[in-house]
Simulated assay, not measured.
Amino acid sequence: MRAKNLLQPQCQVIIADDHPLIIFAVTKVLENVKEVQLAGSASSASGLLQLLQQVSCDVLLCDYSFDKEGELDGLQLIKQIQDLYPQIKIVVLTAHHDVAIALRILSLKVAGFISKSAGEFSGLPFVIEQVQMGKSYIDPVTLDALTLHQLNNGKSSESLSEIPLSEREEEVLRLFASGMSITEIALHTKRSVKTISAQKKNAMIKLGVGNVVELLDAVKRLF
């Protein structure tokens, strides 16, 4: 983790990613943009939260998942930053490119979403300008995938940023992925085994998975 102190920043940007090459690539794109100050970078979720306590930030370019064991998952990290620093515009950078994850991230009302596979880093100055103006940004590759998903499922544009997992279904999936059995989850949550089984089954249907292996893979990518 490192922080920079420059005078009179116009837009202070923090980069958070656990891959040094991503931080390097983003830095190279932004370092000569006059309207942008690179306020710092972090390679872990905990390092990012510490950095945010030290420097001000207007736009956060943040990875969705950090591989370090014990770190907050992407959803938890975004929610915590939004609670602590509601003024920060969050642009999510992610290697995940499936629609379910994109929908879940967008449901958190982040300012932007960029798939690393879309090769959009050269356009980051434009993205930062857009989100600073209060607009949202989704990279073209992801936007095309979301549009196709909308057409295939007959959903309105208003529902594009929603994924149909309830909070309790999310809770069941997290606990199941941690190694708990249905009975253990029922005891832990003080709900019936029948209820937990139904919530797990509903979540599997909504995620489009047909067995436990596929479910665990989906949970790993989603959370």
Rank of each mutant, 00 (worst) to 15 (best):
N152E: 05
D139R: 08
T94P: 14
V110I: 06
D67L: 13
D67K: 12
D58S: 06
S107D: 05
G47M: 05
A102L: 11
G123A: 08
Q87A: 13
L77N: 05
F66G: 12
I114A: 00
F24D: 13
S115D: 06
Q54A: 13
D63K: 14
V29Q: 05
P86C: 03
V29T: 01
H96I: 14
I22E: 08
L21E: 06
E120D: 12
V92A: 13
L93G: 13
P125D: 13
P86Y: 01
K135N: 04
F24V: 06
A42V: 03
G123E: 08
V110R: 01
S107C: 03
D83S: 10
L52Y: 03
D98F: 15
D73Y: 14
L51V: 07
G40E: 11
I78Q: 02
L61Y: 09
R104A: 10
D58H: 07
G70H: 11
L148I: 11
G74W: 08
Q82Y: 04
D139A: 06
S46P: 00
K135F: 01
F66E: 12
V141G: 09
S122N: 09
H97F: 12
E120N: 12
G134R: 03
V141T: 12
A118I: 15
A118P: 08
A25T: 00
L30R: 03
E69A: 09
L61P: 09
V92M: 14
L146E: 05
L48P: 00
S41C: 09
I81V: 07
K79H: 11
A111I: 01
D67Q: 11
L75C: 03
N152H: 07
S41E: 15
L143N: 14
A102D: 06
Q54R: 15
A102M: 11
Q82D: 05
S43V: 08
V91A: 06
S117P: 09
K34D: 15
E31G: 02
S44C: 05
E31F: 06
S136C: 04
V99Y: 12
S56L: 13
Q80R: 09
L84P: 02
L49G: 00
S136L: 01
E35V: 15
G47N: 01
N32C: 11
